[in-house]
Simulated scan of single mutants.
Amino acid sequence: MKHKFGFLFLVCLLSYCPLEAQLPESFTLSDFELRGPVKKCVVQTAYGEETFEFDKKGRLQKSLTRYNEGDYDITYYRFQDGLLKERRDEVYRNGEFEDQTSIAHIYERDTSENKRLTEKIISYDQAFQERVDYFFSTADRLQRIVRSREEGTDETTLTYEIYKDEETTSYIQNGQLQKSIRVSVKPKNGKSEKIELQKEYDAGHPVKAQESRLDSRGRLLSRVYFEFDSLKNTFRPLKTLSISYNAEGFTETETTTYASEEVSKSEKREAEVRKFIYQMDGQEPANWIRKIIQPENSVERRKIEYFKKEVPEPEPPKN
């Protein structure tokens, strides 16, 4: 599922986000580089302002993207028994609510032997409807996705294959391979790294791929992007993104290097390095409130509001 928020989209790029057949998502503080009892975070962006509000469990409950005084989008996340129950995307233009482009996602769960999650997608004016059914095994592993629209029904089947220390998940839509994800965990300097190779297909034919390395905390360390060379019948690397982190765990550098094999001199590009400098808010744990991005020297600013610490009531005196 696509999310419309610019800041969240950037976060998603630096984590692992399947492109299709993705389960309904809810978001937490870690998706926004936030730590501690954060109640609200306001981000100043190039296109406006984004506000994120969280509950005491760290779950995103409301996000607001404001482009100007009259144009803004609001998304609400509502939970029941700890699970996502509703997501509502409301669109306002020129100060007026737009029911045609505002969408509600309603989730229903069947916890019987045939486990199923049903997502109903309905516009506020009832003009557009879509239904997605997610079917699970008794071990809670996703097996099948059925998406129903007015145009027809698409069915995606997931298969799982283990070979040595690697597991490959294949997404087969309407009988054709759409995507495969191969995952392995390997030791590295006394810790573990996860390697994820994702390949995408069009009508069953390979198109592009990306291989990601993640550390034991789930942070992206590097990602190699490939395109399929039909003449050589193999994937050809295009570029590599490498990421380092500072002592606080925030991104310190992003280095993009470009493959030089079989590329003409006019197309060769030098490595690009972006550096990030942070100003912290002094809390414990600390969050950044100002980030300078070099070499463009752009600045991102955040205002963070925390939940007040709950002071326990004093015990009554003992007789």
Rank of each mutant, 00 (worst) to 15 (best):
F5H: 13
F7P: 05
F7I: 09
V11W: 13
Y16W: 05
Y16I: 08
C17W: 10
E20D: 11
E25C: 13
F27D: 02
F27R: 08
S30E: 10
F32V: 05
R35A: 00
G36Y: 00
P37V: 12
P37L: 08
K40R: 10
V43D: 04
Q44P: 01
A46K: 09
E49W: 09
F52Y: 14
E53G: 01
E53Q: 07
D55V: 05
Q61W: 01
N68I: 08
G70C: 03
G70L: 06
Y72E: 03
I74Q: 02
I74T: 09
R78L: 13
Q80W: 01
D81G: 09
D81W: 06
K85T: 03
E90Q: 12
V91W: 01
R93Q: 08
E98I: 11
A104V: 14
E108W: 09
R109Y: 14
S112N: 15
N114S: 14
N114H: 12
K115Q: 15
R116W: 04
E119K: 08
Y124R: 09
Q126N: 12
A127T: 12
F128V: 15
F128K: 15
Q129M: 15
E130A: 12
D133M: 07
F136C: 06
L142Y: 02
I145M: 01
V146F: 00
S148I: 13
R149W: 05
E150A: 10
E151F: 03
E151M: 04
D154P: 00
D154K: 06
E155K: 10
T156P: 00
T156Y: 02
L158P: 00
T159V: 07
I162G: 05
Y163G: 08
Y163Q: 13
K164A: 15
D165F: 05
E166G: 01
S170E: 04
Y171R: 00
L177A: 03
I181E: 10
I181Y: 03
V183C: 00
S184V: 04
N189K: 06
G190E: 01
G190P: 00
K191Y: 05
K194G: 02
L197P: 00
E200R: 15
D202E: 12
A203I: 07
G204C: 08
H205G: 05
K208Y: 12
A209Q: 13
E211S: 15
S212T: 15
S212F: 06
D215T: 12
R217A: 12
R219D: 07
L221S: 03
R223K: 14
F226M: 02
F228H: 12
F228I: 06
L238Q: 06
S244C: 03
Y245T: 07
F250D: 06
F250A: 02
E252T: 07
E254A: 05
E254K: 13
T255S: 00
T255L: 02
T256F: 03
T257I: 08
T257E: 09
T257Q: 09
Y258T: 08
E261K: 13
R269E: 10
E270R: 12
E270Q: 11
A271M: 06
E272T: 14
E272D: 14
V273W: 04
R274Q: 13
F276I: 02
Y278R: 07
E284K: 14
E284T: 13
A286V: 01
N287G: 02
W288F: 03
R290F: 03
R290I: 04
I292K: 14
Q294W: 01
P295F: 03
N297I: 14
R301E: 11
R301P: 00
K303Q: 08
I304S: 04
I304T: 04
E305N: 05
F307L: 11
E310V: 13
E310K: 13
E313I: 13
P316S: 12
